[in-house]
Design a protein around this nucleic acid. Structure first.
Length: 277
DNA sequence: AAGGGCACCTGCGAGC
DNA sequence: TGCTCGCAGGTGCCCT
C-alpha cells in the first residue's frame, strides 16, 4: 500500500498527535505481524515519552526517551488510526496494537493483511537495523539527480526501468503507483532497460520523481482502498493519477490512446503506448 | 550474482 | 444471493 507520500503523511500525523506525549497504555492484540514482535516491545514503550518521529523510505521511526526507537512498516494495508482515549466507538477489525498517551491520545495500528512490521532498536543503532541498511537513496534527497540515476543503472542492461525503480536498494520509497506515474510523465516506456536512459531522460526522470512525490505529499497521498490521513480524510493524489489504475481509459495526455496494463515482475504496470516510447 | 517466482494475508468487486 | 476468481500502495527468501 503506502508508498513514500502516504508513509510521510502518516508519520506527520503521528508527530502532530503524540510527539512529546507519555505512553501510559500499550495493548498488543497479537504477538506478531509479518514477524514476531520483540519480546520487550510493550515494556520498552510503557511510561516513556515520545521524543520524535522520522521516516526512512517506507519505514517510520518513533524515538523514545529511553533511547529505544520503535520501527513501523505499514506493509500493503497498514494504517494508524488516531483518536482519543475513552472514545466509545467499537474498535475496528484488525487493530493489532493500541498505544495510549497520558494526554489522552489513542493510536491504533490496523493492518488487515498483516504484511506490516514492528520492531525495536536502540536509537543509536537505528541506521544499522537489518531492514534499513540495504536501502538506497531517499528520492527527495538533493543527491538524486540525472547523473546519479544514470550511474546507478549503468550496468542494468537486462532489468526493465520499471523494475529497477521499484528496487529499494537503489531508490528507497517508490512503489507501484509513483513509478508508473513518473515513467509516464517522463514519457519512458516501462519495458525499456534501466541502462538505456539517456542523460536527458535521466535528468527529467529524477526531476519528475521528486515533483510527483512532493505534490503527492502536499495532497496527503493517494487513497485507493482503505488509506486515510491521520484526521480520517482521504488523500487527494489519486485524482491526479494519469495512468495508475486507469487501464482502458483514455490517456490524459494524448487522449487518442487507451491506457494499457502489463505485468512486470508479477506487478501491474500502467502506461500509454503512444506517449511512452 | 542477478532476476523471477512464491510466499505471507484479508477483503472487495466483477462475473457467472 | 452466493460462489469463485483476480486483484490490491510491499518485500524477504529460495531457486535458477
Amino acid at each position: 500500500m503506502p508508498e513514500l507520500p502516504e508513509v510521510e503523511t502518516v508519520m506527520r500525523g503521528l508527530r502532530t498527535a503524540i510527539e512529546g506525549h507519555k505512553i501510559v497504555h500499550v495493548t498488543l492484540n497479537r504477538h506478531d505481524l509479518r514477524w514476531p514482535f520483540p519480546a520487550n516491545l510493550r515494556e520498552e514503550m510503557l511510561n516513556q515519552r515520545v521524543v520524535s518521529f522520522s521516516r526512512r523510505a517506507k519505514y517510520i521511526l518513533m524515538r523514545l526517551e529511553n533511547k529505544w526507537s520503535v520501527l513501523f512498516h505499514l506493509g500493503m494495508s497498514g494504517r494508524m488510526l488516531i483518536g482519543s482515549v475513552g472514545q466509545n466507538e467499537p474498535p475496528p477489525k484488525h487493530e493489532h496494537v493500541i498505544i495510549e498517551s497520558e494526554e489522552g491520545v489513542r493510536i491504533g495500528f490496523v493492518d488487515p493483511r498483516r504484511f506490516g512490521a514492528i520492531d525495536l532498536i536502540r536509537t543509536a543503532d537505528e541506521a544499522s537495523h537489518p531492514l534499513l541498511t540495504k536501502l538506497g537513496l531517499e528520492p527527495l534527497s538533493s543527491k538524486l539527480d540525472g547523473p546519479v540515476l544514470q550511474e546507478m543503472f549503468a550496468t542494468k542492461r537486462h532489468t526493465p526501468i520499471k523494475t529497477a525503480l521499484l528496487d529499494q536498494r537503489y531508490i528507497a520509497g517508490l512503489g507501484n503507483i509513483y513509478v508508473c506515474e513518473a515513467l509516464f510523465k517522463t514519457r519512458i516506456h516501462p519495458e525499456r532497460t534501466a541502462s538505456s536512459l539517456t542523460e536527458e531522460e535521466a535528468h527529467l526522470l529524477a526531476r519528475n520523481i521528486q515533483d510527483i512525490l512532493t505534490t503527492a505529499i502536499a495532497s496527503g497521498g493517494s487513497s485507493l482502498r482503505d488509506y486515510v490521513q491521520s484526521d480520517g480524510t482521504r488523500g487527494g493524489y489519486q485524482d491526479l493519477h494519469l495512468v495508475y489504475g486507469r487501464e482502458g481509459e483514455a490517456c490524459r495526455q494524448c487522449s487518442s490512446t487507451e491506457i494499457q496494463r502489463l505485468i512486470q515482475s508479477g506487478r501491474s504496470t500502467f502506461y500509454c503506448p503512444s506517449c511512452q516510447k
